[in-house]
Simulated scan of single mutants.
Amino acid sequence: MKKWVIIIGYLITILGWWGCARQAVEGRDSTQNPLTVASAHDAEKLKDEEQRLLVTPEKAALHPDYQILENISVPFAPEYRIGPGDVVEVIYNFRYDQTPDAYRLEVQDKISVIFPFHPQFSSTVVVRTDGRISLPLVGDVQAATLTPADLAKNLNRVYSAYLIDPQITVSLEDFNVKIKELKRSITTAPRGQSKVAPVAPDGRIALPLLGNLVAEGFTLRQFEDMVNREYSKQVRNLNVTLVLLEIHHSKFYILGEVGRPGAYEMTSRLNLLDALAMAEGFRKSGDLKEILVIRNDGLERPMAFKVNLSKMLKDQSYYADLKIRPADIIYVPKTGLDHINDVLEKIFTKGIYTFLPFQSVFSVNYDIRK
């Protein structure tokens, strides 16, 4: 029994020395003292300090985290990037303004090819997906991208080998077929004809005529430009505007010695202290000197770094620069002392405790009989 008492005494002594040494180091780490407000004079000093640190337009011009809008300094916020679960409204604006350019034939346009002196050759045809039409005697002829006048000129030249002065004319019977199909596939909304398109888990959006397009990772402006480029290859006189209706917030994760570990949504730009506050702060057993952050957002491989938040808070460092990114994993470990406590608990409370009670009682009874 005396042996165990001596061992426990040594452990307590070592832990005491370790705690004193840690406090001494922490005392040396604190290089600045925060301003204490205890009077009206102190409040004025605080106001002056805030004014000195205010980010003016002149300072913002040299600060990468700020921008100047309307001669006002505002924090620079990166553009939001589309992700799975977001809902985008695609508004279709069809332009019907008169233009000096002649109409050019498109796939699925219906045209009449008229032979005034040889009506037996006249026909009504549809421009095929390969851009051609089929006519008597000459077979397939290119039609898409040509104006009706240009097509008539080409046909007159080709048919001159068979007919004398054919004088062929081309007239439009049905055109802008793709626009009509597009209108049938979209709904009518107060802002015009539009389509509500959710972003699928694979990051794609399904759009009429275009099929599935990758949207994840693009800003709204970038994706809008891409959609307009793709539609311009098939439909003329169309302009598309995108509106972000719903945002599926990205998540980050906090584990370890915090009040409420778990997954949290990034509803705004957060720094490390904001994230810990969302998790109801850190426990007394948490080691703020060894906070681990694991990051993999947009990186070719995960990276990890440690943050000494305790020192940053004491030195009044600019911890706001430690921005949290989507999918970050924040781990607050236990302090060394709490690790030792866990070991002692496992050894003495859950381990040796199961044997000691009987032996100690036996020893006491033996001593009494002595």
Rank of each mutant, 00 (worst) to 15 (best):
T129H: 11
D130S: 13
R132H: 08
I133E: 06
I133F: 02
L135A: 04
P136Y: 12
P136T: 12
P136F: 12
L137D: 03
G139I: 07
G139T: 07
V141F: 05
V141D: 03
Q142F: 06
A144P: 00
L146P: 00
T147K: 00
P148N: 03
A149P: 04
A149H: 01
D150L: 08
D150Y: 02
L151R: 03
L151V: 01
A152V: 04
K153M: 10
N154G: 04
L155E: 02
L155T: 06
N156A: 06
N156G: 07
R157W: 08
R157V: 13
R157P: 01
S160Q: 13
S160A: 13
A161C: 06
A161W: 11
Y162N: 08
L163K: 06
I164H: 12
I164A: 14
D165R: 11
D165N: 11
Q167C: 10
Q167P: 03
T169R: 07
V170F: 05
S171N: 07
S171Q: 07
L172F: 08
E173N: 12
D174S: 11
D174T: 13
N176D: 10
N176E: 08
K178C: 13
I179P: 01
I179Q: 10
K180D: 14
K180N: 14
K180Y: 14
E181G: 10
L182K: 05
K183S: 11
R184K: 15
R184A: 15
I186W: 09
I186Y: 12
I186N: 12
T188N: 14
